[in-house]
Amino acid sequence: MSNVVELEHVTKTFGKHVAVNDLSLNVPAGSIYGFIGPNGSGKTTTLRMIMRIYYPDSGSGHIRVLGEEGYGAANDRIGYLPEERGLYKKMKVREVLRFYAELKGLRDCHTAASDWLERMGLAEWANKKVETLSKGMAQKVQFISAVIARPELVILDEPFSGLDPVNADVLRDAVLELRRGGATVIFSTHDMAVAERMCDFVFMIFKGNKVLDGTLESIQNRYGQDTIRVCLAEGNGDLRGLEHVEKVTDFGRFKELRIRPGADTQAVLAALMQRGRVAHFELTRPSLHDIFVRIAGPESAGGANGRQSEAANVGRA
C-alpha cells in the first residue's frame, strides 16, 4: 500500500514559536487517519502544510502529497475543509459549489451538486443565499464544496464540531462512502469516541511533537489492560482511596479506575463490593479519551495549563 501523504522530519516555526517539531508521518492510501491533540498543538498547522498553504521551515525535511513535492496539480486532487468555515455570504449555494468545483478543475458539477445537496437534505436550499443558512447547514455546504470535485485525498479539520447527532451521522456516512470510493481521509477531531470508531490510524500531536501514531489497537496495547469500568447500583459512589487504584475518573453513572501496574484486579473487585452493589465490572484497555488526558491533561508532566493556553494563542497567529 503506497502512502498518499509523507512527511519527513518537518519543522514549522512562527517567529520563535515552534508549531510543529521534526514531524514524520505516513498516511497510507485508502485509510482514515485521525488527528487528535489539544487546541494549539499543531494539528491545523500540519494540515495546512499538507495543503501547501504553509511551507515547512527551509531545510527541514520534505512533504510529499499524492506523489508531488511542493505546490502543483496535486492540489486539484485534494479536498480541504478548514477548521473555520468560509463561504461567500452573498452567493447562492449552488454558485458557491460551482465556484469551488471550477477551482478544482471540474467543469460540469451540476449533477454532482444536486446529488450531494439531496443527500445532505439541502435540496431546497440550492438557490438560497449562503447568509440564509443555519450554521449546521453552512457546514454541510462547506463539506460538499470540499468533496464535490471527487478528490483522492480529503482533509477535514474538525468536520463534526457543532453538528447535531443526525447531521453528524449524515456527514460520517458521507466520509465513509468517500473512503469506499477509494479516497484517503485525514480529519482532526476533539471527539475521541469518533476517532476511536472511525479511524484506521490515530495520530496525536502535542506541543508540536508527535506523541501517538498508529492503529488504535497498537496505541491501546502500549498501555495494557489497566482500566476497570465500574457501575455501582448502591452506595454513595465515592470510590476515592481504593487500594491499587491510581486514578478515578467519574463519568456520573460509570466510573473508570486506572489500576497500578501488576495489581490484582480481584482485590479491587473485593474492595468495590465493600463500597456498594457492583452492577457492572469490566476489565478493559484505556479509552482514547483517557490516553489523551494522560498525555495532555493536568496530571501529565508537560500539561501545565498556563503554558498550554499560551501555546494555543501563538499557534493561531
Binding site: 492540489n75 486539484d76 480541504y80 478548514p82 473555520e84 468560509g86 477551482l103 470540499a146
Partner: peptide, 11 residues
C-alpha cells in the same frame, strides 16, 4: 470569513 484558507487550498 476564512474563505481565503479554502481558496489557498486550490490556488
Amino acid at each position: 470569513q476564512r474563505i481565503a484558507e479554502v481558496l489557498l487550498g486550490s490556488v
